[in-house]
Amino acid sequence: MDIDYVANLARIELTPEERKKFQGQLGDVLVYFEKLQEVNVEGVTPTAHAFPRFNVWDEDEPTTGFTSDEALKNAPKSRNDQIVVPKVIEE
């Protein structure tokens, strides 16, 4: 596993110690997962839901939402009723 690539995908910064430790542990886990490759799953429909249904929806009837105070109460930083984030570098 390319741990740096995946840690970046998951947006988790690892300490050098964690990186080393996980590399080994996750390697073992993946070996353990190899069992899955031996299963014959030809023609088997994947299970996304234990008890699938269709068309679970609401009618389009709006309700009122949060006040901006409620919306921002837990925010680490806010200004002008909005969340402040450090400058976004386009990527």
Binding site: D58, P62, L72
Partner: peptide, 12 residues
């Protein structure tokens, strides 16, 4: 089901 809209005060 919260309302949609344009020009409402932020995050409401």
């Amino acid at each position: 089901r919260v309302s949609t809209g344009f020009g409402k005060s932020p995050n409401t």
